[in-house]
Write a protein that binds this DNA or RNA. Structure first.
Lengths: 130, 130
DNA sequence: TTGACATATTCCTATATGGGAATGTAATGT
DNA sequence: ACATTACATTCCCATATAGGAATATGTCAA
């Protein structure tokens, strides 16, 4: 099986950085496609295609105004993402203390055999895979 | 250009539903791979690969315990997502009233020429593309 | 050392992608 | 009708998937 379609849900749709930029840009005010193209410096077909994806998952609304199409972010559709991430909020509070501990142990010369955690951040990751 | 790698950032990594399930499952307590496999009913190689992606973007930590590898969600890495979605929180409050208006207009028989909004949710979307 | 267990990696393939160029389509003004 | 403006769609292709099967790696126990 291949990767899920970008149009399968909001999670996949916002994985594209460009689409996030667009959502940010048209969050407070509806804008015609051309303005998005100019302001964000992407190609026009590109923007149209991104907007189509966003439209299919409900992340934007459209309205025609003469020959222009006015797009606007439908914030409501971002909510599921917000709620999912929210379930982790209480965890990072608990983990902060643990992270601090590690940081201190790291800068501490008596650092010989800690629990040997692998942080997983790309930097540390590459450093650990020699 | 193709789609960005799943390992390029947290947004791409959590686009996979299975990876979100894993993150949920190992959020409160570290777990060995086998337990994830059994509990979530995915293939073992599949789980290992998902965990690798999550590890590369820093969404999980690992620790070895004998022959087992104990993985655990690194909630801190979810924060960027939380913060991005949070910027939209104030918008959906404002839009709620507007959405209600539309809903009422929809069920209202005197509905002849409203602003003709396209909601963009998949259901409405398909209905609009005849 | 050998075997069993736990996990990781490789090989395979169908599939969807994003961008640019070119083209299609819809609405306007004259 | 026609040219123009504003978008949308199609065609192109290199690339990265997610699984499953098979295999490799690593660790412990006797």
């Amino acid at each position: 099986m291949a990767r899920a379609a970008t149009t399968s849900d909001a999670f996949n749709a916002v994985a594209e950085p460009r689409r996030r930029e667009i959502l940010n840009f048209i969050a407070l005010q509806e804008r015609p496609v051309g303005e998005i193209v100019d302001s964000l410096g992407m190609g026009q077909p590109s923007v149209s295609k991104h907007l189509r994806v966003l439209l299919e998952v409900g992340l934007v609304n459209v309205r025609r105004d003469g020959r222009r199409m006015l797009y606007r972010t439908n914030a409501e559709a971002v909510r599921p993402l917000h709620e999912w991430t929210e379930t982790f909020e209480r965890f990072w509070r608990h983990q902060l203390s643990r992270v601090k501990e590690r940081a201190e142990r790291k800068s501490n010369p008596s650092n010989d055999k800690g629990p040997e955690f692998i942080s997983g951040r790309k930097d540390d990751f590459d450093r650990n895979k020699n």
